[in-house]
Structures are given as C-alpha cells and as structure tokens.
Nucleic acid binder design. Sequence first.
DNA 1: AATGAATGAGTTTTCATTCAT
DNA 2: TATGAATGAAAACTCATTCAT
Lengths: 220, 220, 220, 220
Amino acid sequence: MTAAPPKRPSDSLRDPEWTKARLLEAARGEFSDKGLSGARVNAIAAAAGVNKQLLYYYFGDKESLYTAVLQQAYEEIRIGEQELDLERLPPEDAMRTFIEFNFDYMVSHRYFVALLGDENLHEARHVRDSVQLSGLHARLEQTIGGTLARGRAAGVFVRDIEPVDLYITIASLCFFHLSNRHTLSAIFGRDFTSDTEIAHRREHVVDLLMSFLKSAPASE
Amino acid sequence: MTAAPPKRPSDSLRDPEWTKARLLEAARGEFSDKGLSGARVNAIAAAAGVNKQLLYYYFGDKESLYTAVLQQAYEEIRIGEQELDLERLPPEDAMRTFIEFNFDYMVSHRYFVALLGDENLHEARHVRDSVQLSGLHARLEQTIGGTLARGRAAGVFVRDIEPVDLYITIASLCFFHLSNRHTLSAIFGRDFTSDTEIAHRREHVVDLLMSFLKSAPASE
Amino acid sequence: MTAAPPKRPSDSLRDPEWTKARLLEAARGEFSDKGLSGARVNAIAAAAGVNKQLLYYYFGDKESLYTAVLQQAYEEIRIGEQELDLERLPPEDAMRTFIEFNFDYMVSHRYFVALLGDENLHEARHVRDSVQLSGLHARLEQTIGGTLARGRAAGVFVRDIEPVDLYITIASLCFFHLSNRHTLSAIFGRDFTSDTEIAHRREHVVDLLMSFLKSAPASE
Amino acid sequence: MTAAPPKRPSDSLRDPEWTKARLLEAARGEFSDKGLSGARVNAIAAAAGVNKQLLYYYFGDKESLYTAVLQQAYEEIRIGEQELDLERLPPEDAMRTFIEFNFDYMVSHRYFVALLGDENLHEARHVRDSVQLSGLHARLEQTIGGTLARGRAAGVFVRDIEPVDLYITIASLCFFHLSNRHTLSAIFGRDFTSDTEIAHRREHVVDLLMSFLKSAPASE
DNA sequence: AATGAATGAGTTTTCATTCAT
DNA sequence: TATGAATGAAAACTCATTCAT
C-alpha cells in the first residue's frame, strides 16, 4: 500500500490541497502505467475526478505534473530510508535493514520502479537540477558511508567499497527483477511475480550482498 | 558496435530486403530513444530514407514494427552468447566470459537496454508468446546450467544456485547501471557514463559475482 | 423544406445544443450527398462552421455521427406521420393523406431518400437494434392497420392486405422514382425531377394505390 | 445465377480476356458491396487473383472500372428482357412475363440493385452520356409501349398510361423491397429476405400491377 | 502481359492546451 | 475554485496510383 490517501474534504468541494493530492495520485498511476508520452491528461483528470482544466491550473502542463510526481516519489523513499534511523543499529544490522528496506520498498511501490524506468528514457531531464533531490541523496550517501565505516571499524565489513558503488549494486539487485519482470517472465516462460519467487529472490539478494561485504577480496 | 549495416543495394534502388533492414534499423533507433508511444512513424521513415507508407507496406503498423525490432534485438544478443561457445572453456573462465560478455554487450548496445525498459512498461506484450524467443532462452538456460554444473563438479563453484536465478542476478548488475544511469547521475550529481566509471563497475560486478559463486554459503 | 434550423445562440458563441444541431445538419447534408464512405469529416466540420475536433467531442467518431443522423431522420418522418392524426379522418381520406404525406415528404426531404439508400448499402447496421426506432415503427404499423380496418369495416376498402405489405408498396412508389431519378433520367434521356413530372407521378401513385385498395381481388 | 463465369484459361496464364472478365466480376462484387467510395482497388485485384497494376493496365482507373461494371450490368438485364421476345405473346401474358422477369431478375441479381443505388448517389454520372445505354433503353420503351398498345387494342388493358411511367412503377415495386430490405427488416424487426416473403411480395406486385392495368380509372 | 516496390496526397483520429463563464 | 466548450497541431494510417523490371 502506498502513501495514505489524503483526507476527504470535510464539507466543501473546494479543498485545493486535497484536489492537488488527488491529481498527483492519479498522475502517478497513469504515468507509471503508461509513461510520460503514453499517459493521457484526460485519463489523469478523470481518475482524479476533477476537471481537466484544474490540472493545468495547479500544475501548468503535463510535463510539470510529471516532474512533480517524480519529485514526490523520490522524497517519499528517501524519507522512508531516513526514518530507518540506521545509526542506532549495529553496522551489520543497519546494512541488512537498509538492503531489505530497499528490496521491500520496490516490491510494494512498483510505480516507483516504473516511473524511474520511464524517466531514464527521458534522460532524467525532469529530476536533473533539483536542488532538493541532490540534498536528499547527499544524506543517503552519508548514511551508507557511515554504516560502511562503522562496519569496517568493527571488523565485520572487510571489503573496501565506495558508498555510491554499493548503493548502485544494491539498487540493481532490488530494482531489475521488478523493472524487467515482464520480459523475464516472457522469455523464461515463468511467472516471477509470485510471493514465493519474490521471497526467494529477497533471500538471495541479501545473502549475496552481505556475504560480499563480509568477504575478503580475492588475493592474487 | 551494432549489427553490421545491410549491404548497399547492388545497383538498384529496389531492394526490399535492404529497405526492410533500413526500416528496422531506423525503428530501433527511434524506439529506443523515445519508446513506443514517443516514437514517431514519420521520424522512422525519414531516418530510413523511405516513404512512410512503405513502413506500413512491410510491417503493417507501428506496433508490429516495434515487435519486429524487439524480436531482432533479442535474437542478436542470444546469438552472440551462443557464439561464445562456452563449453570449450573451463567452467570458471566460461562463467567470467559470460558475465563480461553480458556487461560489454549492454555497454555497446545501449538501445537494447532502452528497448527492454520500454517493453516492460508495456508488460512485455510484444515479446510474450514468441515461440522463437522462448526457444532461444531455453538454450541460454541450458548453457548457464551446464557451466554451473561443470563448475560444481570441478569444485570451483561452491554455491548451489538455479541457472535462471543466476542469470537474473547477472543481468541486474549489467543492466541497471545503464538503464538507470541518467537518474543515478542526476541524483548523485556525478557522471556514471565515462569509460573509467564503466571499467570500474565492470571490475566490481565480475568480482562480486565470481566471489559469490566460489564462496560457501553462510553457515548457521 | 427541411427541419427548421435551430435557433441562433442568444448572445454567446458557446451553445452546445446549437453546435450539435449544426453538426448534425451539416453531417446530414454531407452523408446524403456522398454516403458514409464518401463523406469527409473535414467537410462536415467546415459546413457546420466548427472545429473538426468538436465533432469527435460530441459524437465520438464518423460512424456514430452517421448513426445519429439516421436516427434523427427516422424520428422526424415518423413524428410527421403521427402529427397527421389520421384517426380523426374518415378511412379513405386518412389513407390518401398518408400516401400523399409520404410522397411529399420524400420529395421535400431528398436527403432522407439518399441516407436510406446508403444505409442499405451498409446493411442497415447503424439503425438495427435501435429500440427507439422499433417503437416508432410499431406505432406506424398500428396506424396503418387501424386505418385499413376502419376502411374495411366501412366497406370502402375491399382488399385484404397486411399493414406492412401496404406500407412497403406505398414506400416503393414514393421512394424509387426519387432514389433512382438520376439513372432513370440518364437511361431514358429525360428529366424526371421537374415539378410537372413529380406532380404527374404523384397523381399516378395515389390513383394506383387507392384504386387497388378499393378494388376486388381477381376472382378465379 | 449471374452471367456464366468466363471460361478458364486453357493452358496459358496470359489470357487477357479472361483476366479482364475476372477483374470485372471481382469489381462488380466489391462495388455492389461497398459502393464506389467504399470499394478498395486492392480488394478487387485480390479477389480477381491478379496484380493490382493489371487493373490499371486494363481499365485506366478505379472510376473507369466502375463505369465498365455498370455498363455491363445494364447490358445484361436489357438483353435478358429482349430475349423474352414479348411480341410473340398475347399482351396480357407479355406484360405479366415482363413484370415477373423484372421481379425475378432483381431477386437473383442483387448486385444490380446495389450498383444502381450507389450510382444514383453519384447522380448517375457514370452512365449518363452512354450512347449504348440510351439505345438499349429506347428499345425497352418501345417494347413496353408496343405491349400496352396491343393490350389496349385487344381491350384487355383499359388504363391509358405512358410506357415510361409504367416502367418506373414496375421497377419501383420490383426494386424497393430489395434495395431497402435491410432498413425495412431493421425497423419492422422482421426478415424480408426469406423465400416465402419474396414469393408473397411477387404475387402482390403482379396482382397490383395487372389489376391496375385492367381496371378503369376512377370516374369523377 | 504481368508483377512487386514505392509514393504523395489525403483521411480519420488523437491530444495537449486554452477560452469563456 | 471549478467547469464544459472549443481549438490547432500533429499523429497514425489509408488509398489510388505510378515506377521499374
């Protein structure tokens, strides 16, 4: 389940915040289903239950709405990560928690996976230059870096790896099996979306990553 | 480097095979750049240097052309894999070769990455039900399975892992850093597309995967 | 003279009912001139003096507009018939009035003749299954049947004939000389569209039908 | 059953007359099904089993082919009428035979009905000015006129009616129930195409016409 | 005589966006 | 704040016709 739906309008039909939230939610659904070009402004307005013109009134145009959706999506996951409060945990637990959070977040927020896929088709031109987002991600880098450092200090993490490199590896393993689940299912003639398959992959991913961090690099 | 461009028409302007090949090539470019909905039939015909109607004459409609492009893309990579002739190599070399081939193929065939991303947005409805593709991938599964078995028999691979699970893990690590390179670059304010970065990641991916295969699972 | 044009918009350019009526009127003209396939959506919009897209906004597509035109055409003639209020007339007058109304209606509503001709080319697929139309025609059948019965009861109509059979015969004689007037004129090298010719035929048709109804069947 | 299909090509694929005949036949089917605008040159060539370009080679363009089809259709019915050799029959028999021939011809050559309907949509511009056709129809007028005269001379026909007027009335009654059978069936919710219905109508039409010709005009 | 390849002009339809209220 | 009406530009697709062999 995604973010809680905005509260119903108390008694008036005129609740701008609620209307905007409904539009954003509808847009997120449409954009993640169809992509930026495939999405229809009509469909978004209809799904939000408001007049199409309101969308323009609040968001300017289709592309700005898309940007707003992406912005919100990134904020939500990064806030979720911060709320894990990894510093309070021993490094190994912290890392495992971080990996599992990412894995589970993608599973339960498939729209996030789809949105990012589509935004990459557009060369990320809607999120690039967002000061807000770079701030959020600087914090993310620090969190991972801190956990790694604590782990190495404690002797549980042996590998020397850059935080961003590790993040990309984690993200790869949490993201790809979902982003590409349809083609994978098609070419292997098998359904990769069952709970069992997902649980199996979760275990594999966590195992792979943790054992990597804890193992010594191959000497030569 | 992509597939070699079809031979020029010997002496005539009327060479249907060549025309179809040019259309496919142009379509591949447009579809990987813009996605199915974003692509313009006009642009494809123009890029192929032919009349727009020829596209319909040969491929029926936009969506069938898209399907043809995907089909061809899958065939090319799978043929490339088969030409590696992994059976001739000792298991460890075979596996490393397979991983490196996949990594390098994605790097040099970015359109493949983009096409698959877009096709997943459409829930793989253009490749599903392709008998041809499922045959190609059955062979792939056998190749990986064979290499794993040989490695375990020889004692170099300790992990017990399903071929398809391993394939997905490999693909994740070869694919994601490219499919999501734009958002990654945007959020971390850094360019992940330089040769140096790519080489760095290649080493990391191969290292991660090989050491995983060769390591013992965590005892409990 | 066709149906009165809808009232002009009082003071605003935004009068959806008026716009729809203008579109229907323009469509009726174009469809009856060119048929469904020959008609051009562009021409209809231009004739209605509105943007082409409005046509889609209000009617969905070309074929639905065609259906709406047919529906309206049938409604108008059947309403006209009902307004004759045949029950108030003695049966012979009623029947003559009905025949003359039909004859005159076709003459003054040539588009109706053309539309029906074209709709038959399409096997009536646009009017089939219209509940509204079958209701209207059930009433028509009753009206004719009632008049026939009254006439027989009064001894003025001798022939025993089914209402629908009679209707088809009447319609044949009122319709064909108009629907086929161009080929008739061409093959006989004569103009059948002059007022004199029409008046001559009217007399002939009424005479033929009335004398048939009043005559005894050939004994054997 | 329509005109006998042209003889198969004896041994060569190159039999221009046969090819032209197949094209005409295919065109007749397509034009009577879809009308001039609805017909597709592609479909005609495919149905004729020949290359589309041959159609242009033999007939020039779509519209000329349409004209050729109409020309042939008119010739065939008028030749059929002449072959009745009405002069050899007593006038009443001759007239009844003429009426029945027309009725039956329309029933068994529905394409003729459809073609004429469509040609009237085009204001008969494809048959107008055909010297050949006006000759054929002059003869028709004479045949009817002669039969009427013989009948009046013999005292069996009482009515004084112009040959062309009579022809139009006959044609109305033979044509309309077929040309408009789809809308009639739709609006009355009944199938007018069964053999029983057709036989019923045939009797009615012959009865109506013969009794009209033999009856005295209403005195006043 | 016959064919498959190729085309230009046009056709329906879609869609983001703006206007008027 | 909210709405339904209206639009222009462009999209996919069609189709009669011609070219080259």
